[in-house]
């Protein structure tokens, strides 16, 4: 009897991680993944258009926009690269810039639900398409992901970004500018995702440490504040873990 109950609970834990919810089909999960991509897509698509327009205005060939978006798939660094490429910046400088701007991605592996994806090609795609928005949306609702939902959402993001760039390339010749202020959609998205990740009071210490790290970074290294703040935040969390471990050891003694 006891053995049975243990089996049931282990089974329940296994089911909750990456299995389809009750009554769901792969098709309905793909639809859910695409639906979950809409809010972020609202920010990505207009920025993609702006990126396409920028490529054309700097005189680079049109295929630079979809090419960069397929090779790198990282909005902020692609926007940065357009200016650097137009100025024929040496490849070593370009490599260093990409390394520094995209370095934040190393932190995403800690909580991105890659383990729910099993097929090697799908895993490759999921890692390759691990953009800020994909991390942010998954981090805001942990434990709800399965392979259909996750890959569908990432592929939808990919199509918004590449599609936006192509629309920008096509529009560049006959529009004077874009709608002023539309890029706030990205800020608004991160605000809602932060609110979703911060549902319980237990999250407050992390929020305080992040604020501390960002505040110091903005004052000390304003040009690399994002990178420095993430590094400082992780260091503070490690210190918090060590402090907690010491307290646990002290309580045992």
């Amino acid at each position: 009897m006891i053995a049975d109950m243990t089996n049931v609970s282990i089974e329940a834990v296994r089911r909750s991680e990456g299995e389809l919810p009750e009554g769901a089909t792969p098709r309905s999960e793909i639809a859910t993944g695409i639906r979950l991509s809409f809010a972020a897509g609202l920010g990505m698509f207009p920025i993609g258009i702006a990126f396409g327009v920028l490529v054309m205005q700097t005189g680079l060939p049109w295929w630079t926009a979809p090419g960069l978006s397929i090779a790198i798939f990282g909005g902020s660094v692609e926007l940065l690269l357009v200016g650097l490429m137009a100025a024929a910046t040496p490849l070593a400088t370009i490599a260093l810039t990409i390394l520094l701007v995209n370095f934040r991605h190393v932190f995403y592996a800690f909580s991105f639900p890659l383990r729910v994806v099993r097929h090697p090609l799908a895993r490759f795609y999921s890692v390759y398409a691990l953009i800020d928005e994909a991390y942010a949306v998954t981090a805001a609702s942990p434990g709800t992901w399965n392979r259909y939902r996750l890959i569908a959402m990432q592929a939808a993001f990919h199509s918004y970004w590449v599609g936006g760039g192509l629309v920008g390339v096509a529009l560049a010749s006959f529009i004077p500018g874009t709608i002023e202020g539309l890029e706030f959609a990205l800020c608004a998205l991160f605000i809602t995702l932060t609110l979703d990740a911060c549902r319980s009071r237990k999250q407050v210490p992390s929020l305080v440490l992040a604020g501390l790290s960002l505040g110091v970074s903005l004052v000390m290294v304003p040009d690399d504040a994002l990178f420095a703040a993430m590094l400082g935040f992780v260091a503070l969390l490690i210190a918090r873990h060590l402090l907690g471990a010491r307290r646990r050891a002290g309580a045992q003694r």
């Binding site: 960002l214 994002l226 969390l237």
Partner: peptide
């Protein structure tokens, strides 16, 4: 611990920097 504590802080940092 890091997996549990990181998301909210990273998201807050991304919010303020954007």
């Amino acid at each position: 611990d890091l997996a549990l504590w990181m998301p909210v802080g990273i998201l807050a940092i991304l919010t303020v920097t954007t």
